[in-house]
């Protein structure tokens, strides 16, 4: 009964280390927009984001943070998506619109 889970773990999958320094998605403030430069993390996470429509070169807007400051809410491709900050830390971005 336990083994059924083990073999579906994503742990063995390769992890992608971010190659660039700089701004991460989790550093953005509500209202700011950014372009996605690179997505790191486990392959499972990267695939998940791809199929949910968050790919490199896409524009994301940070809508807000949850009352306890985690997770964060993004607007991607016209819909609302929520990510934990620890996951958003694996996404390198380039700020394109500041919060006035």
């Amino acid at each position: 009964m336990f083994s059924r889970f083990r073999n579906r773990m994503g742990n063995s999958a390769p992890r992608h280390q971010l190659t660039r320094e700089g701004v991460r998605l989790c550093d953005l403030h509500p209202g700011e927009k950014a372009r996605v430069l690179e997505i790191g993390g486990s392959e499972q996470f990267r695939i998940r984001l791809m199929e949910m429509g968050l790919l490199t070169n896409d524009i994301v807007e940070v809508d807000k943070y949850a009352p306890l400051m985690d997770p964060m809410e993004l607007i991607v491709k016209g819909y609302h998506l929520s990510l934990r900050r620890m996951d958003a830390e694996k996404i390198a971005v380039e700020l394109i619109e500041r919060n006035e």
Binding site: F2, F5, R6, R8, M9, G10, N11, G41, S42, Q44, F45, R48, L49, M52, P71, E73, Y79, H80, L81, S82, L83, R84, D87
Partner: peptide
């Protein structure tokens, strides 16, 4: 232990 490490990344749509 028995349910180790399979927590999936939290990527949630807010419909």
């Amino acid at each position: 232990t028995v349910l180790r490490g399979m927590s999936k990344p939290f990527v949630l749509e807010l419909p």
